[in-house]
Amino acid sequence: MKWLRERMPEKKILPHVRRLILSVICLFIWLPLLMMAGNSFLSKGEMLSRFGPVLNGGTGAVKVTLFPDFPTLSPFVELLLDSPGFFVMFWNSCLQTGAVLFGQMLVAVPAAWAFAMYSFPGKKLLFMGYIILMILPFQVLMTPDYFVLNQLHILDTHLAVILPGIFSTFPVFIMTQFFSSIPPSLLEAARLDGAGEGAVFFRIGIPMGFPGIMSAGILGFLESWNAIEAPMAFLKNRTLWPLSLYLPDITADKVSVAWVASVAAMAPPLFLFLAGQSFLEQGIMVSGIKE
């Protein structure tokens, strides 16, 4: 042990220990995802032989492996060709999530710019209200949201999910931090050159705050795509349900389809997260900076 310490000083050992610990944590995180991807190729017979005790309510041990013994594409065929409800809910998720993100960009970007660049009476109090609304759980806001949507006569429509998502306060908080980091001298120089407030916003604010906008957009996509409580509370018509409500509705006799549907539901957020990981890192760093 003494020889090892002499050959590898503490400063060289600690990075390897940290990498080992992080690798083990990552393995535990990725293991369920790999198992889900592998089980999507299970046949019905192999599915029953492995998960029969759980599916049939019996006793016995569950056989968990990462890859099937006899992989098959029959679950994919059943989901993509014999499950029209899946495509309806997938389209609903795309429609609702896309509309929410588009609305958030129209509402949250100007609101964040106003909070970051202008001084007006009650600014701090109003921004504190945004933060309070951001940390409140959906269960607290569900009842007032339901009454407001009912008065607007848009319950059981796509707007019942889209409208509350558009006015989410979290994107405003994220983008305000990015806009606040823009050097004031740069904005003053643009104004001295004759640029109006609109030109400053579109030509300086949006380009320099683009990482924050992308970060808020990615987080907003993940929240809307995986939403469960709001669609369950505001949508009674099953044809309007998003994909997040499709998986709980799958019966035990189609559990092989559930694995494939899980992979299909996970693919868009996973690709988006990997593509925008750098923006998310910048968003976490900037949102953690205290003035």
Rank of each mutant, 00 (worst) to 15 (best):
L163R: 01
I13T: 00
V109K: 07
D82W: 12
I228M: 05
R50Q: 11
E229T: 11
E291Q: 13
K290S: 15
L149F: 07
N237W: 10
L219Y: 00
V148L: 08
N226W: 12
P164I: 08
P184H: 06
G276W: 03
S93P: 12
L4C: 03
L192V: 14
N237T: 15
T65Y: 03
G122I: 15
P15L: 06
Q96L: 14
M117K: 09
F86S: 04
F202V: 15
F271D: 00
V172W: 07
F127P: 06
Q96V: 15
V255R: 01
S93A: 08
S215Y: 02
V17G: 00
I182M: 04
S278L: 11
G217I: 04
G57F: 15
E291M: 13
P144S: 10
D82Y: 11
G103D: 08
D156M: 13
V148D: 04
I289D: 00
M105E: 10
P110A: 09
V286P: 00
P183Q: 13
F138W: 14
M47W: 09
K124Y: 13
I218L: 14
H16C: 05
W3F: 01
L33W: 06
I206Q: 03
A227D: 09
P71F: 08
P137E: 08
P171N: 02
A258V: 02
L163H: 07
G58Y: 14
A190P: 10
E281T: 14
G209M: 14
E291F: 13
G129N: 11
M36A: 00
F210E: 01
A189S: 14
W241G: 07
V54H: 07
L27N: 00
M105N: 10
F279K: 05
L101I: 12
I131S: 15
A160K: 13
S185I: 09
M214C: 09
E6A: 15
R18A: 06
G98P: 10
L272Q: 12
E46F: 04
Y246E: 02
A264K: 03
I228L: 05
Y146F: 10
L152A: 04
L155T: 12
D249K: 14
M232V: 07
S180Y: 08
I166M: 13
F279N: 12
S119H: 14
F234Y: 15
N92G: 13
S215T: 09
G52F: 03
F201E: 12
L159A: 13
L270Q: 15
L192W: 10
L31I: 05
S168F: 05
